[in-house]
Amino acid sequence: MNLMTFSKYLPYIFEGSLWSLGLVLGGLGIGFAIGVTFSLVQVYGNPLLRRLISFYVWFFRGTPLIVQLFLFHWSIFPALGINSTALTTSITVLGLRSGAYQSQIFRGAIGSIEENQMLAARALGMSNWDAISSIILPQALRIAIPQISNEYSVILKDSAICFILGIMELMTRAKYAAIATGIALIPYLIAGLIYLVLTYIGTMFFNLIYLKKRIPDSVEG
């Protein structure tokens, strides 16, 4: 086997980046919805719900992704009668997991907003819900952008673990190409390069949002 044969594998490997990106966007999206909701409940919700969410966060942050994938694909979903494909399971689990992390990101962001912002909103006559949705959340989301960007690059690399359920993402394809051609280093280097590019694009994207949306903090800023 030589490099020529290997170069024919490039499209196959590149296609893997679509899968990885799909897993990441799916996980990040679901995680965002869960993260925002759960962070609000954790900050403002009743004690029982707060306890439940703490447990949820503890579980998803405290167990390896691989265990969660098995657990959901082969125990929890079947037990619930949900007939989930490996892909649906992977995206859902990435989402649930990222939700746990994102809820802590948003909780931190909400916590960093001064108490007085809430006070001022209430003094204007806003209901709690109005104050949260139009004063607290918009600020928290802006504050959290850099960490969400970070979460993106974390999930991107986490998504490689989904190979364990037969998901043909980037890393798995690199491995199969390496094995079929007997060339070990180059496929992995290419996969690594694609990860770098994807991370770069994602970070740029979040940076752009950040620059557009961040709260100016200096005169003439």
């Binding site: 007085n116 912002q117 006070l119 001022a120 909103a121 204007l124 006559g125 004063i135 802006r142 709260i215």
Partner: peptide
């Protein structure tokens, strides 16, 4: 509360809104 105006020692303007939006938000939301 909307019938009572409160001015704080620390101003407590909403950081993420421009001056005019700070003034508008009570009118649009409340």
């Amino acid at each position: 509360r909307r019938k009572i105006g409160f001015v704080f020692q620390e101003f407590n303007l909403f950081h993420h809104l421009t001056a005019i939006k700070n003034v508008m938000i009570g009118l649009t939301k409340v």
